[in-house]
Design a protein around this nucleic acid. Structure first.
Lengths: 136, 136
DNA sequence: ACCCAATTTAGATTTAGTCTAAATACAGAC
DNA sequence: GTCTGTATTTAGACTAAATCTAAATTGGGT
């Protein structure tokens, strides 16, 4: 049901390296939708081995291409990453910047409403607003 | 019904300058969702006066803050701009990169479905897929 | 015409991301 | 286990997008 990072990479045909494993593991256990630099900082500090900026970017590209993670675009100029690859969307709390996952099932299916003219392969919905804290 | 750039800026409390006018006019007559650099290139070439990069960025920020234009985030690392401020969404043709406006009315209203926990102020839907060319 | 605040400007700076070429790691053949 | 070739990682140079700075310009109000 729920895969380890190692199983997931293998399943998706990504060769195992310690850098790829540790980046994937980090993304799987955070809900923070971190940027590449945040990933570098977080992973580098808990690692004995070195980890270069280029490797973080290379690895993120590899993982996105393999479908292991997704890019999240919610603000200008920064790309964030999300290990949740189930179909889902995002809610941005505009005060804190916190990004919360919104499962596909919470929304009506709008994939089909566009009709023949548009062959929709995927879509993302990004909500902006205030997250009601007491119902966290 | 349909405003001139000058009327729109005045209505929104943005002081008139020739740079602001010409950038707003350019955005109002294109459907290309251009980046800041594309705006600079397009506007600079048809202008007698100079126009600096900083002014383009300053002006775009001013116009976004005043609600005259919107930012469009469809791809990593590049911010695009759209003078269509009616509630609408975007379809990205993944082959050509062309971005097409999708009016709010084409979609079910998903503003309300999230319930009390989320106070949605705005949302954007971005579709990715193939645009069927013969029905253009 | 003068003044003051807002705007524009060139260019330096910052930040996100890419590229390059050398070093390292790893899987398969033996 | 060692060899060998390809893939991966690396440091650091580089590029591109956006911001900052401080000086020059503009333009409305008197």
């Amino acid at each position: 049901m729920s895969f380890t990072a190692k199983e997931l990479l293998t399943k998706r045909g990504v060769k195992l390296t310690s850098q790829r494993l540790v980046i994937t593991e980090y993304l799987m256990q955070t809900y923070e939708h971190p940027t590449a630099d945040e990933i570098l900082a977080a992973v580098a500090e808990k690692l004995p081995m070195a980890l270069s900026r280029a490797t973080v970017y290379n690895t993120l590209k590899t993982l996105v291409d393999a479908g292991v993670i997704r890019e999240v675009l919610t603000e200008p100029g920064r790309t964030r990453y999300d290990a949740n690859t189930s179909e889902h969307h995002h809610f941005v709390d505009v005060k804190s910047g916190r990004i919360v996952d919104i499962p596909q099932e919470m929304l009506p299916d709008i994939q089909k409403v566009l009709g023949d003219k548009y062959n929709v392969k995927s879509y993302t919905v990004t909500f902006y607003g205030d997250l009601n804290e007491d119902s966290k």
